[in-house]
Design a binder for these strands. Structure first.
Lengths: 335, 335
DNA sequence: CTGTTAGCGCTTTCAG
DNA sequence: CTGAAAGCGCTAACAG
């Protein structure tokens, strides 16, 4: 090392000069070493260390048209349901050299369009959205970019491009069917008002074939809102037997409020949530819920983007990861 | 609009031609309208609409040396404690036109350094890290970039640059003092092994002036691990009276396990957590905890970065946001 | 295996 | 208020 590292950020030009090679050879030594002799590679690497060089991906991306970034849009990062997905996305992308740029669209469709534009101006190599892209303008916008797009956590007949998720209508139907199979008739629903929760609600009601007392709350749901929602449902039907809640935190609130009102779970009231949160198996009573493999959704979405970027064929561009109802103590009534 | 939007992404060049002005005038009309006549601005804006132009921030950033991105490093996005901070960061930055690029360093210091380099290669205009930057090489690396750096959720005498957080030693001391003030002597601690939790543990023990039975678990803590931790603590002292837990989810697990073992809270055992999670006020019994304004940390950190980037003076570059112990039912014993 | 040339799309000078 | 020239740092394309 000739001197203490210089203050100004070194460029590839500096590295090349230090190594005594041309600019492009230095470039290749770092990003495509197969084309360069071992001796040269070593000299370039020494020069990198000596200069404290950090590559400028912005400059490289401008020419190569690969930013090595992927844009991720979630309604809000505060809702724990999507955390495993975001985490798996980040990790899978990172392993392939891509960085996730996270955007929060809120539960407001007009913001979706604006945020999308902001994201596109960074020229991501792919886009992953949580839920479907709803605005037609945004859908058209996305198609025109010609970059891979994955819609997640939902399924639809008209995807923008690729898709990995579940059928929320089926989830709602399965939970209603589960309640019916156990002979519970006086049901209730506590649900958020976002698109996916409403799909589950519709599936629930469709399978049941009739309306049920329902507490609607604005998304995102929370434990606190669950406590209030139970109050609302008990007003509508004081003898309610079984409640489906659109999230596990929400269901947890219903259970706590039930206990506070002297209702025993599951003897007096059974509860089923959605999402299988990390706490759901461990609270007391443990919570029956519909499990969805959120990490798998993130991993698959990332892999689809990566494969497409690298020109590999996509095994399946429309994946239903499915769900399963996990029966726990909150619905475990003696026969 | 002359024709259906072209397939290829329009460049500023196309916009300028469509508007009948020079490239640079089109540029100014969009990014510095004060310098351009109203009539020209209108023509450029029409051309933008007609061509479907989306600016390329990568290209602009290359010349202007402002990427309008900020790198954010968290141990893991899965731990709810930092969610309000990440959320406030994203929102405050977004409002000023900056995007957050999120990186997960894990609880592993060696990854910190590598991730930092990856991030720096995107030339962010600022960096926010959760916790302190520990590796000396990384600290030096960061300083040399000459970009604003904020370390959060902690305080130290030797910040890399700016800092907004709390003293974890003081938190631990305050909780021990709170226990002592109520006359509880048989204490226990259940704590994660990450740096901040260990600082609280040290503060707790220092204030107490003696060692206590302690269950150490690898970070991140969880409800499930809390249930096991109580078992461990009861083995060490079957007559334990008061337990401090390093997170609220962890404390919740301790409480559930206590109930499962027939221990009443707070009559037989009192519990104090850390973080004031969204559920803590609403579980039953509600959880006494140390509250930290995580959103405020995110907001302040973002504002520091923005102010520095825009050449404004920073009011305070070393902020202690403080904490307060919120007493709830889990420590509410009758006198 | 190595080098030269020509830009990527935009913004910063410096002139009108 | 508008424009022409120059170049940010890097890589694709073509030579040697």
């Amino acid at each position: 090392m000739s001197s203490p590292l210089p203050l100004k950020n070194a460029t590839l030009h500096d590295v090349a000069r230090e190594a005594g090679v041309s600019l492009i050879t230095a470039s290749r030594a770092l990003s495509n070493p197969a084309l360069v002799s071992d001796k040269t590679i070593a000299r370039v690497q020494n020069a990198v260390a000596a200069t404290g060089y950090i590559p400028n991906l912005l400059a490289g991306g401008l020419k190569s048209r690969r930013s090595l970034t992927v844009a991720g849009l979630v309604p809000t990062i505060s809702v724990p349901q999507f955390l495993p997905t975001v985490r798996a996305l980040t990790e899978t992308l990172d392993a392939a050299g891509y960085q996730l740029i996270l955007g929060q669209s809120g539960y407001d469709h007009s913001r979706e369009e604006k945020l999308l534009n902001t994201m596109l101006s960074r020229r991501p190599d792919g886009i992953v959205v949580t839920g479907l892209v709803h605005s037609p303008a945004a859908r058209e916008q996305l198609r025109r970019q010609g970059i891979p797009v994955v819609e997640t956590w939902d399924l639809s007949d008209r995807p923008v491009d690729m898709m990995v998720g579940i059928s929320h209508v089926k989830v709602g139907g399965a939970i209603a069917g589960f309640f019916l199979g156990r002979g519970w008739q006086r049901m209730g629903v506590a649900t958020g008002d976002d698109h996916r929760a409403m799909m589950r609600y519709e599936g629930f009601v469709a399978t049941l074939g009739r309306d049920v007392p329902t507490a609607f709350v604005p998304a995102p749901t929370s434990l606190e809102r669950g406590r209030r929602a139970l109050g609302e449902l008990l007003e509508k039907d004081p003898h309610i037997e079984a409640i489906y809640c659109s999230s596990d935190g929400f269901a947890h609130g219903v259970m706590i409020e039930a206990r506070a009102r002297g209702l025993r779970i599951p003897q007096d009231l059974v509860v089923c949530g959605f999402g299988d949160a990390d706490f759901s198996a461990h609270i007391d009573p443990s919570l029956t819920t519909a499990h969805v493999n959120g990490a798998e959704i993130g991993r698959l979405a990332a892999q689809m983007i990566i494969d497409r970027c690298q020109g590999r064929p996509i095994a399946q561009s429309h994946v239903d990861v499915g769900f399963r109802i996990i029966e726990r103590q909150s619905t475990a009534v003696a026969a």
